[in-house]
Amino acid sequence: MIYNRIAHLLGLALILMLTWAPAQTEGYALGQSKFGRIEKFPYQVMLIGKQLWRKRILCGGTLLDRRWILTAGHCTMGVTHYDVYLGTKSVEDTEQLGGLVLRSNKFIVHERFNPETAANDIALVKLPMDIAFTSRIQPASLPSRYRQDQFAGMSVVASGWGAMVEMTNSDSMQYTELKVISNAECAQEYDVVTAGVICAKGLKDETVCTGDSGGPLVLKDTQVVVGITSFGPADGCETNIPGGFTRVTHYLDWIESKIGGRSAPQQQYLRTQQHHQQQHHQHPYSDNNLI
């Protein structure tokens, strides 16, 4: 959630090249974004992927059960394997916090994922073994398939490690509160908003940014995951333009078909709040919008 003045969304690079040398980069927090305690986000996963043509890339993920992680389809592009960090707020703190690091080379991408339109931007990463749950490693809940509302007007929380030009092993997870807007309102910003997309925007200049890709969007004060960070404004993160997320309720059947079951949904939901329509010029989508 950190924005650097020379960092922008990176098109099909999508995520950050990482360096483990000390960084001199100065970060700028987005609006109300805050550093997070992993106990509040025990479902948050860090995915460090090795690509064939790059060094390393950074994405987020959501733990669904003892074996499966939910992430974005574009986070798998060119990746041969992941180092999966669970139960930690940073690479540096993993051992101290009792976190877990596993390597995985097994992942499933939606069969109709299209990076040119961000369609079906969803994937699953399979861990090499069943993991034990702790106070810092807990699964998120999938939303009920019987929810009739589209979440518009509800408060949600996005979390992740984006974005810095260079990420170090001491960079901490951050989170920010957003509000879901209707797809009709979001379509005024982007030309790729479909039933499989959910959009949310900040009260000020908060939005998801490079490196947050694949991470969770949950209903506030719950661990119910309703979105997967997918795309955002191509002209930078320090903006009040909404971010685009893969709508989890749209893909429940697909998730179940791959993992063979689903977590029981949490029953704590916030009441729908009245949202305010705002007029904007539409931002034609290009793959530069993928975060």
Rank of each mutant, 00 (worst) to 15 (best):
Q148D: 14
V45C: 04
D121Q: 13
H275A: 15
M77P: 00
G87D: 01
T25D: 15
T249W: 05
E206F: 03
K179Y: 10
L142N: 00
D121R: 10
Y285H: 07
R262K: 11
H110F: 08
L203P: 00
E256R: 14
S33L: 01
L14I: 14
L217C: 11
E111L: 05
I2A: 08
E256C: 12
M154C: 07
Y85D: 03
S155K: 15
Q279A: 13
V125D: 00
T246H: 01
I259N: 06
V91H: 08
L97H: 11
R37K: 09
M154K: 14
L252A: 06
F133N: 02
F245Y: 15
G261N: 14
A195W: 01
N183E: 01
A163P: 00
E26D: 04
R67M: 07
R271Q: 14
I122G: 01
G11L: 07
E111K: 11
L18K: 05
S155I: 10
T246V: 13
S159W: 02
F151M: 12
K220R: 14
T71F: 03
I69R: 00
H8P: 03
K258C: 01
C209P: 01
V45F: 03
A7M: 11
G153A: 10
D130N: 15
H283W: 01
L12I: 07
M77K: 03
D235I: 02
R112W: 03
E166W: 07
L127D: 08
S172M: 11
L9C: 00
F41L: 10
T272G: 01
G11Q: 11
H81L: 04
N288C: 02
L100C: 11
D130R: 05
S141R: 08
G196V: 09
A13G: 13
G211A: 12
L18R: 06
N289M: 14
L86W: 02
